[in-house]
Nucleic acid binder design. Sequence first.
DNA 1: CTGAATCCTGGGCGATACTG
DNA 2: CAGTATCGCCCAGGATTCAG
Lengths: 135, 135
Amino acid sequence: MATMTAGQRREKARVEYDAFIRACPTNQLLDRLSDKWVSLVVAALSGGPMRYSDLSRKIAGVSPKMLTQTLRALERDGILSRTVTPSVPVRVDYELTELGASLACLLTAVKTWAETHIEEVHEARERYDAEADVS
Amino acid sequence: MATMTAGQRREKARVEYDAFIRACPTNQLLDRLSDKWVSLVVAALSGGPMRYSDLSRKIAGVSPKMLTQTLRALERDGILSRTVTPSVPVRVDYELTELGASLACLLTAVKTWAETHIEEVHEARERYDAEADVS
DNA sequence: CTGAATCCTGGGCGATACTG
DNA sequence: CAGTATCGCCCAGGATTCAG
């Protein structure tokens, strides 16, 4: 058939757009930050090096799978370093790299914005929800 | 039984920690930013007001459902304003609020960081992957 | 202690069709 | 034009178990 359905056209556009998005550094970073555990790990490590078990305790509720997955991804990206001390039992330390530290600065900026404007957001929500009640 | 399994303990910790996290402004903001479409919508609107159909065209591949969902969430948070002009056919304009504009600034900071350091990240990845090949 | 491998479930997201 | 309603798929992520 010569024509595409609306869905097919959107699908095509989506695939192309996805490629564009994946190639965009900003979105790559946003994807990282989007991960729930990443910011927690970075925040935890910004206070200094920590062991695997320290992290799993400090970041309560994380499953070993997700912790490992997160740590591996961040190590791959050069955000943190992984140091194995072959003692018995094994000891592994994680530490932010210089790159990771600069990323932590970004998180600080986000944190600052959040603390500065969270009240406005809450007020906006209450206003919005109040209007919804009326209707 | 008197004791809890590791899973149960972690589950309990997770629930408590979730409550803590939800109350944290930084994480609330991170959650917003984490949404794939949010940054795209904000970026699109940072160039000026747009209509619904303009957005769905500019942000290729977004389904009407997700676009609406995203717009509603951002409106609720006071990030953007929704203006209905009851003509025939209906016309709806979306525009960043002042709060939304300040959020856009944050995105700019993220963008700057990403563009500055993306090379280092890529190099780190290649190094990491190269080592993986050896083993 | 630090993970790797496996199974499994929930709900987020996309596609589609329909309304004012 | 600007959405709403509904269905179904898929896979991210949690639980669990085992290994070095």
